[in-house]
Amino acid sequence: MPDLDAHFQCVWTNAIPDDHVGPVAVVPDGCVDLLWKDGRLMVVGPDIVAASPELHGGTTVLGIRFRPGAALRWLRTPLSAMVGQSVDLADIWDPATVDELCQRIAETPSVELRATVLQQQLLRRLPALERPAPDAGAIFAAMASGSDEIGSRVASLVDRLEISERTLRRRSHDYFGYGPKTLDRILRFQNFLSLVRSQGKQRMAGLAYEAGYADQAHLGREIQALCGMTAGSFVRQITG
């Protein structure tokens, strides 16, 4: 819905196979989502390491993803307070309002219509909200670019936004849950993940260089730190 475009990146769904048992690995991506699952609306905060939520076989998850900095406006909570957490929306908004919204969604027969109902209800809250702060998008884009060393990008942001480095770190914690350096690590990892998905199994050294890592060993350490597995195991899992 166009009126929501300034606040949300996309609406998505994920159907869990009927025969699935156990947790689902969700790697950090620097984003915050509002999810409909198991009859409730949940806010999934930013992660620093891979999460392993338990999802029942046959579950269909409906999600809507906040744009950089938008979650702070909607949740009225610094994202640093939600790192690695999944929080019931009723703990943040008025419980009666959330219960009514959950009931409306539950009564809708298809996931497509549920997405429409969710967006329509979010539109009702829109007039009371400011747009995401412009510097949030600037910080996210600078860290996602990976064009220069992290120190150069931070220095450039400080000059362009006319703020101190300390203020930049504080705003980054408010918008994303962590500082620019951690955000840079996570977005570089997401760049690597996109390359694996688009190019398949290639030489790890080449993928590491293209994604912005110093070398293959650097990539391996980051995958182990963020996902708890070796680079080879991770790539095999992604490419199936």
Rank of each mutant, 00 (worst) to 15 (best):
R131Q: 14
D135Q: 04
R131V: 13
A115Q: 05
R124I: 08
R153A: 15
L129C: 11
V117Y: 03
S152P: 05
G146Y: 01
M143W: 02
S152M: 06
S152A: 14
R131P: 15
I163N: 12
G137H: 07
I150Y: 05
L126I: 06
V158P: 14
E112C: 06
A141D: 15
A128E: 14
R124H: 09
L126S: 05
E112P: 08
I163G: 14
S156K: 06
T116Q: 07
R124Q: 12
E130D: 13
D148F: 04
G137Q: 06
I150P: 10
G146D: 03
E130Y: 01
V117M: 01
Q119I: 00
P127K: 00
A138N: 11
E130S: 12
S147A: 15
F140Y: 15
A155T: 06
L161R: 04
L113Q: 13
P134F: 05
A128Q: 12
S145C: 08
S147M: 10
A138F: 08
P132R: 02
G151C: 04
E162G: 14
A128P: 06
L122K: 03
D159K: 13
A128V: 06
L122Q: 08
L113F: 08
A142T: 09
R153P: 15
L118H: 05
D148Q: 08
S147C: 13
Q121I: 00
A141Y: 01
A133Q: 11
P127C: 06
L126V: 10
L157W: 03
L126H: 09
R160H: 14
E130W: 00
E112S: 12
G146M: 00
L126G: 10
A136Q: 10
I139L: 11
L161P: 12
M143P: 13
Q120P: 07
V158S: 07
G151P: 03
M143A: 05
S156Y: 05
S156I: 00
Q119E: 12
A133M: 09
G151D: 11
R125Q: 13
I139E: 07
P132L: 05
L157A: 07
L161E: 12
A136M: 11
V117L: 02
A144E: 11
V117H: 02
F140L: 03
L113I: 01
Q119V: 01
I163A: 13
S152H: 10
R131S: 15
V154D: 10
A141Q: 12
D159G: 12
R125W: 11
L118K: 01
D135C: 03
R160A: 15
E130K: 02
D159N: 14
L118Q: 02
S147T: 13
D135P: 03
V154K: 08
S164W: 06
S145L: 05
I163F: 13
A128R: 07
L126Q: 11
A144W: 04
P127L: 02
G146H: 00
L123M: 14
G137F: 02
D159E: 15
L122C: 10
V117R: 02
R160N: 14
S145H: 05
V154E: 11
E130F: 01
R125P: 04
R125I: 01
